[in-house]
Design a protein around this nucleic acid. Structure first.
Lengths: 191, 191
DNA sequence: GGCATTCTGTGGCTTACGCAACAATGGGAT
DNA sequence: ATCCCATTGTTGCGTAAGCCACAGAATGCC
């Protein structure tokens, strides 16, 4: 989003990465609740006090990990200069479902305890993403409305993902194609 | 050797490892002479000034890399509580030849410029190793003599390695078996 | 219940590292 | 020969990270 990204001390990046990597590794073998800060800092070969200089607690770390991995995943299939249209929505849907799949496989032991946190996180991120896309295509609509519509759209999409995951036997591509007319109908208010 | 190994700041170990790893990686693709300090520190994501806090120059780094890898290699086939005998000598010979082989393959681009440095280094290390083994088995011989005999033995063994590498077509195991009687004859002065 | 143990945040102090700037050296090109 | 640019070590200063010790909370065990 902001490309200048003014220089960050390399030590900060290094330590952050050490912590994130350590956490992701541990999450594969241990339940989230039973992971202690010490487990993480030991694995990261970082002092416990240093952890707290980067993150307030375990949950903030989880948040950061999700942001990193989710956005990484997202950007592989979407660039933020796209307009919000049928293709974009479909791509977002597919990226989310793929991401969830990956998480539940990679983080077997922790995924269940993560789920509600992940859900909120992704919806917030989505909301921000949609809002960004919408403002970028300068429509003649007040920002207030765009904000709310972003919320609606993010819940809608995320709901679709959850439903697909839990109840559907369709391939993701089919599912989203089926859902698309309804979504587009809602988005039509934009133009 | 010394097992207490009083605690070292983890940052030092980390930085050192980053530098060593970076160097070994670069050595695969570039000639030693053409590797700059900046190349190394960039790859290691470490500041150039930090490099100089750890090593005086490129050669000291090379020295450290060799020590680490050589001793690692050596200890896999030998423990320092062994006595100095036929088996030990044979193991050392094989460890060295294996190590040289590995280097020349791994560090294609740099090996030739390394060679003389490596040679001195290994002989020094060998000398220390032999001296250690000899003193450990408390013989009734002055230290002064043990020191000199360690030198002779290390040159002898290293010479054998070089000759094998350059002139011999025998398998290393055969070669050392052939050379062994002569070496043992020399060592007989010890008992 | 009580007791011991582990974990969590936090603060004060020390140390290692990053940064920018420097003079000195050494090719390489024209 | 001259200029140019890159590399080499070195320095002083600011900041991130390590270390230790602490009190309070949580957990487990009997």
């Amino acid at each position: 989003m902001m490309q200048p990204e003014q220089k960050v001390d390399p030590r900060i990046l290094r330590t952050r990465k050490l912590i994130l990597d350590a956490f992701m590794t541990i999450a594969k073998t241990k339940d989230f609740a039973s992971i202690s800060i010490k487990d993480i800092t030991d694995a990261a070969t970082v002092n416990r006090a240093t952890f707290y200089a980067h993150f307030a607690d375990k949950y903030e770390l989880l948040d950061a990990v999700l942001t990193d991995t989710f956005f990484k995943n997202m950007h592989e299939h979407l660039n933020c200069h796209d307009r919000l249209n049928e293709d974009t929505v479909a791509n977002v849907f597919l990226a989310i479902t793929r991401f969830q799949k990956e998480l539940s496989v990679q983080w077997k032991k922790s995924y269940e305890s993560f789920r509600p946190i992940i859900e909120n996180k992704i919806k917030k991120d989505l909301e921000g993403l949609f809002y960004l896309l919408l403002t970028n295509q300068n429509l003649a609509v007040e920002k207030e409305k765009l904000k709310i519509w972003s919320v609606l759209l993010s819940w809608e999409i995320y709901g679709a993902c959850t439903d697909w995951q839990q109840n559907s036997t369709l391939p993701a591509e089919k599912y989203i194609k089926t859902a698309m007319p309804y979504i587009l109908q809602g988005m039509a208010v934009l133009v």
